[in-house]
């Protein structure tokens, strides 16, 4: 039981799980375009995406705290003082990753 709770908490801490929930909700709307689904999509899809983005920022913050010498491990070299040691004084979550 406790192990399952831990597994669930770990899963909910992954942005990918929330992105999948968001995607499933939108796909459900396309496949079953019933009027009853619209309020569900309007609430569930953005809520899942919000959760995904918040967990992603938390993951990035934890990563920065663990690997301060890598500047968050995002590979963003903008404003780098020394190669491999980016300046992170502004606390920015760098924009090397983009979508």
């Amino acid at each position: 039981m406790a192990a399952n709770v831990v597994r669930l908490r770990r899963a909910l801490g992954r942005p990918g799980v929330w992105v999948a929930v968001c995607a499933v909700t939108i796909v459900a709307l396309v496949m079953f375009p019933a009027a009853a689904l619209w309020p569900l999509v309007a609430a569930a899809a953005p809520a899942a995406m919000f959760a995904a983005v918040v967990t992603a920022y938390e993951q990035a913050a934890a990563f920065r705290a663990r690997y301060p010498e890598y500047g968050g491990g995002t590979g963003d070299r903008e404003g780098t003082a020394r190669p491999g040691h980016p300046e992170r004084a502004d606390g920015d979550t760098p924009g090397a990753g983009e979508s």
Binding site: V53, A56, Q59, A60, F63, G73, T74, G97
Partner: peptide
């Protein structure tokens, strides 16, 4: 960081 995390942030 994982690609998805970098993309979302």
């Amino acid at each position: 960081l994982p690609l998805l995390t970098r993309a979302l942030t």
